[in-house]
């Protein structure tokens, strides 16, 4: 696995820096993303990991520029050096149709139920003036590649006649059809049956590696992210708290939240009571002026509450924590819910 995202000097394929996003809720702008920064090099896979509501999906919507009306962004979102937020209609359409593709969480909702699988697959190609015959041939070939054996028959079927796993393969095939450079997968296996999750994930991973696509992979499953990505960005309350190479994130996690997340994974070896980070996740708009994790952080100090830490480089990580160096290697959570470094009342009960 390549732990260096991009060769020095070269521009990454995607660069998101200090992205802020406000979305109107009942007429009032609401902060959804505070400070999101990450890079994805060509052919590199980045995992965006975080709890529900941490802003992972919204980040991908910004990448696709599929935002609700009235959304306001700030900061940079660059694709191959071009700001996505500044594209005009024509450039945006070209970008969406040939540079980036997305695999959505629930294929049943993401595919129009009134058209056949074939129509769904060929639609985008037909729009690019590819002949019907060629579009269909390419679609059938791709369906076979994603492991659908009776592809010609499936082409004539409607989405409701296919199982969720099969439909997600169709979705993956459709993402590959236009030969994009960047693939975004938003929890592509969450809506599927457990037994098909693994297969679909394997196909997605295989396809992207074969084609050398860059991948932004959204999940709340740290282990899954570590298995299929090169780097992981951990998000919390609309903020990227830490990014690191997937390979050694487990051992070298610096941010108290990352360490907490790693500690709260269920273990199949050691069946103890499941540990959870105390407190409830806060939404981006609820966060105070300080670090977004202060309320739940056992190591929070006055400075953490007053001043929001910026993402900075520590070792080979990027971390947004004032005390990163000081706490390095010293954060451990015990299974009974206490942080042993600095035990205080905040972590008393789980």
């Amino acid at each position: 696995m390549n732990s260096r995202p991009n060769p020095p000097g070269a521009d990454p394929l995607v660069r998101v820096s200090h992205l802020r996003l406000d979305i109107p809720v009942r007429g009032e702008p609401r902060r959804v993303l505070h400070d999101v920064s990450f890079e994805v090099g060509a052919g590199v896979a980045l995992g965006l990991v975080g709890e529900s509501g941490s802003g992972k999906s919204m980040t991908t919507r910004v990448l696709m520029r599929l935002l609700p009306h009235g959304a306001a962004t700030d900061g940079d979102v660059l694709f191959d050096g071009t700001p996505v937020t500044g594209m005009d209609r024509r450039a945006l359409r070209r970008y969406r149709s040939s540079e980036v593709a997305m695999v959505y969480q629930d294929p049943r909702a993401a595919i129009n139920p009134v058209y056949t699988v074939g129509a769904f697959l060929t639609e985008a190609l037909r729009e690019q003036k590819v002949s019907r015959k060629e579009a269909e041939e390419r679609a059938v070939a791709l369906l076979r590649e994603v492991g659908i054996t009776d592809a010609p028959r499936r082409m004539r079927q409607y989405p409701h006649q296919l199982s969720g796993g099969l439909l997600q393969r169709v979705m993956i095939a459709s993402a590959m059809l236009t030969k994009p450079r960047l693939l975004i997968a938003d929890e592509p296996t969450t809506a599927l049956d457990v037994t098909t999750q693994e297969e679909v994930m394997a196909i997605l991973d295989e396809q992207r590696r074969e084609r050398g696509l860059a991948l932004v992979f959204i999940t709340h499953d740290l282990d899954l992210a570590a298995a299929v990505t090169d780097r992981i960005a951990v998000m919390y309350a609309g903020t990227v708290l830490e990014t690191a190479a997937s390979a050694n994130l487990h051992e070298t996690a610096l941010h108290p939240y990352t360490v907490g997340l790693l500690a709260s994974r269920p273990s199949t070896v050691d069946v103890k009571r499941l540990w959870a980070i105390p407190g409830r996740p806060v939404s981006a708009f609820e966060a105070g002026p300080g670090c977004v994790f202060t309320e739940r952080c056992p190591f929070a100090q006055d400075r953490c509450r007053a001043e929001r830490p910026a993402l900075r480089t520590v070792d080979d990580h990027q971390v947004a924590c004032h005390r990163a160096e000081e706490l390095r290697g010293r954060i451990t959570y015990e299974a009974d819910g206490h942080a042993d470094h600095q035990h205080d009342e905040q972590t008393e009960s789980v």
């Binding site: 070209r94 970008y95 969406r96 997305m102 959505y104 629930d106 009134v114």
Partner: peptide, 24 residues
Amino acid sequence: EHVGTATGRGLPPVTVFRRHVLRN
């Protein structure tokens, strides 16, 4: 959501409206 998919595939807005909004 499927209208979002169609838009995200770079289809022109008129096509999205006709094929995915009006038709449904």
